[in-house]
Amino acid sequence: MAKPTKITNEIRRLRFDADEMTQAELARRVGVTRQTILAIEQGRYSPSLEVAFKIAHAFKVPLDTVFQYPLGETED
């Protein structure tokens, strides 16, 4: 439960690049709570594919620009 996800993301940078979009604004566009955006940014929650696509759509970028999964480092 407490293990951080291996999925990394660029949401914070993308928000900054998108005219310093707030977490609340992104949350409103995606349809989740601000706390969920915060948890995703901090790697404490892996969103569903649907939410991941919505986040990418909010920034008008491909999914893999927002989220990265470091292949080759998947084994513990």
Binding site: A24, A27, R28, T33, T36, Y45, P47, E50
Partner: peptide, 10 residues
């Protein structure tokens, strides 16, 4: 927005 339905994480 704050009081809206719980999201997928909730």
């Amino acid at each position: 927005d704050e009081m809206s339905e719980e999201d997928e994480r909730d």
